[in-house]
Design a protein around this nucleic acid. Structure first.
Lengths: 118, 118
DNA sequence: GAGTTAATTAACATACCGGTTAAATAAATC
DNA sequence: GATTTATTTAACCGGTATGTTAATTAACTC
């Protein structure tokens, strides 16, 4: 397997079980047992899927007592989205205007969004 | 390997050689020999990479004399981008405003963009 | 400290991936 | 029709992925 960041991310996501785990984690932290519950699969198998997601930087391991709660890390997805942008013009008809809008955002708001907006 | 569309797409993209091939094809059609040229790899190896990309629907095979020119198909990337959108809010600070803008686009322009714009 | 709960590691099996070289197929050219 | 050019298929190989069950580690609980 290729070991560059993007390849690892794509590889990690190329499995429905792992995408399901990620979707679950996007709703909040969870333990391995909780994550394994929906799947017809042994615990070690899930544990290994998690290791793949961790290697890709999509999941982070915490530690509380005998629990190792997992947490979702979106950064690799941001990078993947960035790579995908190179191809958006091939399918997105309104890409030109979207692109213009994004450039506008970037120009006028280098400081980021107002915290009270969230 | 998982055989659902999204998994196949991600699997296909999870290899730097295949991403390079795709990048090349995004600039226009090319034969297998042309595609293989930049790589330190046998022709059959490239041929098989192409088959993976084709299975994912990212590449289409043409036929002219003894040549089988390959063509880029962006649709699976559009779908992947769609999937990624579910997670954008996790990393994009300006997602709220972008989302608003996209909704605006969708509302006001159901007919698509003006052809003369392209 | 014995037992329970949470999770990983070890050992193993099967299948797939990505590369190789050699042979086969397909169409053009001499 | 023999040769050249383009490409795929076949046969093979080593490494890795994904699953299993059994054993181990780690921390809490009684």
């Amino acid at each position: 397997m290729s070991t560059d960041r993007l390849s690892m991310t794509l590889q990690a996501l190329a499995d429905p079980t792992r995408r399901a785990i990620l979707a679950r984690l996007a709703t909040g932290e969870a333990t391995v047992n909780e994550l394994a519950e929906p799947f017809d699969m042994s615990l070690p198998a899930v544990s290994r899927h998690l290791k793949v997601l961790e290697r890709a930087g999509l999941v982070e391991q915490g530690r509380t007592a005998q629990f190792r709660p997992r947490k979702f890390r979106p950064e690799p997805l941001r990078d993947l989205a960035g790579w995908l942008e190179n191809y958006r013009r091939f399918w997105d008809e309104s890409f030109d205007r979207l692109d213009a809008y994004l450039k506008e955002l970037q120009k006028g708001e280098k400081h980021g969004s107002d915290p009270k907006d969230r």
